[in-house]
Amino acid sequence: MRKINGFKAYDIRGKVPGELNTELAYKIGRAYPKYIDAKDIVVGYDIRKSSVEISEALIKGLNDSGVNVTNIGLCGTEMVYFATPHLNADGGIMITASHNPPEYNGMKFVRKDSVPVGYSSGLNEVEQMILENNFSEVKVEKGNVTDVDVMDDFINNLNQFYDVEKISPFKVVVNGGNGCVGLALNAIEPKLPIEMIKVFNEPDSEFPNGVPNPKIEENRKPTIEAIKEHDADLGIAWDGDYDRCFFFDEEGNFIEGYYIVGLLAKSILKNHPGENIVHDPRLVWNTLEIVNQRGGKAVESKSGHAFIKEKMREVNAIYGGEMSAHHYFRDNAYSDSGMIPFLLILQLMSEENKSLA
């Protein structure tokens, strides 16, 4: 069976223009809505240089298929996950290569209600449609494009996950890595009682301070230095499309992801005792101990966002976490978020009057 190089297990991702280009983006726009039978699709994109031209080609393909597009513009992946059900769209596409180098780009796909579409759950079919030029005819009555700013709605939707009255006036280093999260941090900053010390907050397609990937040890140095310089209470750094966030304590120590899964489970079970918590199979002792202590039920899933989300829906889990720093929330369309963990950890530290250390 023939394959297209950029089609991966969970998304499309590759170098531009060799593996992803405007021609392929247009064909994806022709094939994807036919596969999911969509009339309305949300499109967003990250800060990469190629994102605008790829989004324009994708949107043309969607419109030629008779699909109406809601273009939410420059955003994080979780904003597409939010906007798709919020706007009652049939699907969503986020143009991003997350933490990959600048020459890469990609796409992440969801159906209605932000149910993920990966290779085994539909992208393989889209791939074959493209290889066989199996598209519907270009519609005489093409779809339209509506530009919508959902930032305020997105920020307001986060209110359900935390209580601002219970957050202490911490001094917090926030490192956006010149990705997209700076826009969301600017929007939520007036609502929080904390002092934000912003590092690399401006979106910049050149990634002048390195690829926004805090998993790489050398990329943690600016966050650690800012924590020590400003005597901050903690630090948080995000990847490029801010569906993952990473924590540092007041001494600048990096907190491994499996500890954060346990802390988030603890935070959620305080207000929702007895709920199911889904976790991946790696380094689970901390999560199991906390979930059992808090009266929850721990449910194991295979690693990977498609498996975690599927298991969460199956058992109606309130939260799912992976040590890779992906955190999923039932009331967030079972989708991963880099903003909700940030808020929940702030509140947990405040309520318990304890540092991350």
Rank of each mutant, 00 (worst) to 15 (best):
65 S>K: 01
4 I>A: 06
253 N>W: 00
143 G>E: 02
247 F>M: 10
13 R>N: 06
177 G>F: 13
2 R>H: 10
151 M>D: 00
214 P>M: 00
45 Y>R: 15
217 E>G: 01
61 G>Y: 03
130 I>Q: 05
162 Y>F: 13
55 S>A: 15
196 M>S: 05
32 Y>V: 02
169 P>K: 00
76 G>C: 13
144 N>S: 13
79 M>A: 14
255 I>P: 05
268 I>F: 13
266 K>C: 04
176 G>M: 12
8 K>L: 02
224 I>W: 07
172 V>Q: 14
281 P>F: 06
82 F>K: 11
241 D>T: 12
303 S>W: 00
120 S>N: 12
335 S>G: 13
315 V>Y: 07
213 N>C: 09
155 I>Y: 10
144 N>V: 07
127 E>K: 02
128 Q>C: 00
192 L>F: 08
326 H>I: 03
181 V>H: 14
163 D>G: 02
61 G>Q: 06
346 L>F: 10
258 Y>D: 15
162 Y>Q: 03
309 K>V: 12
8 K>C: 04
230 H>E: 15
209 N>T: 00
155 I>M: 12
246 F>Q: 10
344 L>F: 03
204 D>E: 07
353 N>G: 15
8 K>D: 02
320 G>H: 08
68 N>M: 01
207 F>K: 11
143 G>C: 02
22 T>Q: 15
296 G>W: 07
52 V>A: 05
341 P>N: 13
142 K>G: 02
133 N>S: 03
278 V>E: 06
118 G>I: 03
83 A>Y: 08
340 I>C: 07
184 A>T: 10
158 L>I: 00
41 I>N: 02
157 N>H: 14
260 I>G: 08
131 L>M: 04
284 V>P: 03
26 Y>E: 10
110 V>H: 06
19 E>H: 13
152 D>E: 15
94 M>A: 10
15 K>G: 05
318 I>A: 10
53 E>D: 08
77 T>E: 14
150 V>W: 10
287 T>V: 12
311 K>Y: 02
126 V>D: 04
239 D>P: 11
308 I>D: 04
142 K>C: 01
277 I>S: 03
196 M>A: 08
190 P>S: 07
67 V>G: 01
296 G>V: 06
259 Y>C: 01
45 Y>M: 12
259 Y>S: 04
250 E>S: 14
217 E>Y: 08
185 L>N: 07
51 S>E: 09
18 G>K: 14
231 D>L: 00
211 V>C: 11
259 Y>G: 00
307 F>W: 02
180 C>K: 00
194 I>S: 09
6 G>T: 08
239 D>R: 09
130 I>K: 04
66 G>F: 02
314 E>L: 11
86 H>K: 15
115 V>S: 14
44 G>K: 10
27 K>D: 14
66 G>I: 03
25 A>V: 05
251 E>F: 11
89 A>S: 14
72 I>K: 12
154 F>L: 13
196 M>V: 08
106 G>M: 06
326 H>K: 05
314 E>C: 07
75 C>E: 00
81 Y>M: 02
98 S>P: 09
229 E>Q: 15
327 H>N: 13
106 G>Y: 07
249 D>F: 07
189 E>W: 00
43 V>E: 07
220 R>A: 03
81 Y>K: 11
255 I>W: 04
21 N>E: 14
